[in-house]
Amino acid sequence: MADVLSVGVNLEAFAQAISAIQALRSSVSRVFDCLKDGMRNKETLEGREKAFIAHFQDNLQSVNRDLNELERLSNLVGKPSENHPLHNSGLLSLDPVQDKTPLYSQLLQAYKWSNKLQYHAGLASGLLNQQSLKRSANQMGVSAKRRPKAQPTTLVLPPQYVDDVISRIDRMFPEMSIHLSRPNGTSAMLLVTLGKVLKVIVVMRSLFIDRTIVKGYNENVYTEDGKLDIWSKSNYQVFQKVTDHATTALLHYQLPQMPDVVVRSFMTWLRSYIKLFQAPCQRCGKFLQDGLPPTWRDFRTLEAFHDTCRQ
């Protein structure tokens, strides 16, 4: 209401300002009329020039006067919408024909909505930062500019150290054989054969596991040119499902400061698949559900569950 009142106080000034604008416009058009008409109706050339200049000057002065008047009035009018929270758009509320142009209410709705969105996005970003899925250390606070310099130290481990960690894990589990190769530079690729149950291709970056693919024991894991095939998935639904779960496990086991522990925990978890076809589901007690055996292994207890039976 205060806005409306303050506008009301200035209405007088508004009316005067509008008439001042009208005056200014007519005086300006008089100037152009005078220029258009040019010099005429005088006998001598000098008389014509004099009369024209005098007339032109008069006109210009009246323009000047009107302009000054308008400036004075505009100071009186002030800026009525300044203290409105929506600034100039708040003036839309003055539109009397609400039914035909409901712009103002729509604007308010959009404003509220975008406010809420911003609030929720802020909350979500806070939560997501707590549960970060970035698996290497020192990445959170590093600005984009400095990132190339501040490489996490865990990413530049010497290949010898990686070899040691892997061979130690290999010795830890007798039913699991790990074959390490480096076909593309320093990044290691592991071919893990688990009993006579399955084969897993593990793509590493230093000691971080980047990608795993699980295939059947009797499936081909090499491409035609003899390299490990890290792209194609298994032909069997059960191993496609296990691949999905293994990817989940990669994100679950994370300890940026001790990457060797992560690899060891992952391999321990993977080893529980030795009984993929022999262990019934711990919840429903059955072997099959929709044609699949219990493909999920609990991260802590390593118990077997169907994908839909786990909590």
């Binding site: 006579k196 059947g216 009797n218 032909n235 076809f277 022999q278 019934p280 072997f287 055996p293």
Partner: peptide, 12 residues
């Protein structure tokens, strides 16, 4: 198809 050891998957 996925299993190659008979005794492993007989119950299944």
């Amino acid at each position: 198809g996925p299993c190659v050891i008979a005794s492993d998957c007989w119950s299944l």
